[in-house]
Amino acid sequence: MTGGAGCGKSHVIKCVYQEATKLLRQLPRLPFTGTAAYNISGKTLHSILKLPKSLKPPYKGLGNSLDEVRAVLSNVEILIIDEISMVSKDLLAYVHWRFQQIKGNNRFMGGVSVLAVGDFFQLPPLGRAKPLCVAEDGMLDFWNENFQMISLTEIMRQKDDRAFAELLNRIRVKGKADLLSEDDRSLLIQAVTDPKECPMDVLHIFATNKQVDNHNAAVVASFGAVTVDIQAE
């Protein structure tokens, strides 16, 4: 499931998670002690599945950790992977092999249903790895072989400012060599560019943590309240 910013991807994840959990609780074959739908992001796949540092073949099994991982994931029926743009082909292959081992069968992902959510126009995988949607010769391609793409198109978050939201999505897919239309350029020029002209109480976005810290400190100082330090015990 993909789509631009503000189209409701996170909301759909919550709905799927809640509805799936309600339905899976009713299955008599599941000794339901936790949640049968697991939502994990690309950053935590390594920790929950105990993946090795190197994801290159040959596959390294769980060994003595198999029982420990099975205790947590053996009843999982639906796997929701968020931020799928950050998942490489090697990582997806390892997740597939892990669930085959956990579930004890040779079906794709061990028979677990997978909902992958994200936007391939956002963060790519770490290092030099190509996103899942980019075909590469000689690479295992579990993505194109097993997934169907669903795109959310209706903007929900900025529905009260549709012109600006639609502009953001046009920029999202714009190539570096593509020129902005005059209408889009005019709308962007209306934005405040001088920080001194921007009110302190609106959302600010900075490129570095240092700039964030400086701004936050300035906002706190503007309140005029006395700062009290309390020594923790």
Results as ranks from 00 to 15, higher is better:
82 D>K: 04
34 G>H: 12
41 S>W: 09
10 S>C: 04
76 V>I: 15
23 L>F: 06
38 Y>K: 10
43 K>C: 03
96 H>F: 03
129 A>L: 02
23 L>Y: 07
111 G>H: 09
79 L>K: 06
96 H>Q: 13
31 P>L: 12
50 K>R: 14
19 E>C: 04
112 V>W: 06
5 A>F: 04
94 Y>Q: 06
107 R>I: 02
55 L>G: 08
93 A>C: 10
12 V>I: 15
89 K>M: 07
69 V>F: 01
110 G>D: 07
78 I>L: 15
97 W>H: 10
77 E>T: 02
109 M>I: 10
8 G>W: 06
17 Y>P: 00
33 T>E: 13
126 L>V: 15
102 I>N: 06
18 Q>S: 12
41 S>N: 15
51 L>Q: 08
139 M>V: 15
31 P>A: 14
56 K>P: 00
31 P>M: 11
122 Q>Y: 11
29 R>M: 07
103 K>C: 05
72 V>F: 02
6 G>L: 03
133 C>I: 15
110 G>V: 08
37 A>E: 11
48 I>V: 15
117 V>P: 05
72 V>K: 14
23 L>W: 07
11 H>N: 06
72 V>S: 11
10 S>T: 15
137 D>Q: 08
57 P>E: 13
63 G>V: 08
6 G>S: 06
15 C>Y: 14
86 M>R: 08
79 L>S: 03
83 E>C: 03
67 D>T: 13
113 S>H: 12
50 K>Q: 13
95 V>H: 01
102 I>Q: 03
15 C>G: 01
124 P>F: 03
9 K>Q: 11
16 V>A: 06
11 H>G: 00
113 S>E: 07
84 I>D: 03
41 S>R: 04
104 G>N: 08
75 N>E: 13
132 L>D: 04
106 N>C: 02
110 G>P: 07
14 K>I: 04
38 Y>E: 08
61 G>Q: 10
84 I>V: 15
5 A>L: 01
130 K>P: 03
83 E>F: 13
78 I>V: 15
100 Q>F: 01
32 F>Y: 09
27 L>I: 10
58 P>V: 11
132 L>V: 09
8 G>S: 07
48 I>K: 13
57 P>G: 14
123 L>D: 01
135 A>L: 05
55 L>P: 02
136 E>I: 13
55 L>M: 07
100 Q>W: 01
139 M>K: 13
121 F>A: 13
15 C>N: 08
70 R>M: 10
124 P>I: 05
59 Y>V: 09
17 Y>C: 00
112 V>L: 07
40 I>C: 12
19 E>K: 11
103 K>W: 01
95 V>Q: 02
76 V>P: 00
116 A>N: 06
105 N>Q: 07
67 D>V: 09
122 Q>S: 03
11 H>K: 02
45 L>C: 13
53 K>G: 15
68 E>P: 00
124 P>C: 05
22 K>S: 12
60 K>N: 05
62 L>N: 06
46 H>Q: 12
31 P>H: 15
7 C>K: 02
107 R>Q: 14
84 I>P: 00
95 V>E: 05
26 Q>V: 04
21 T>Y: 01
66 L>E: 08
88 S>D: 06
61 G>H: 08
42 G>R: 10
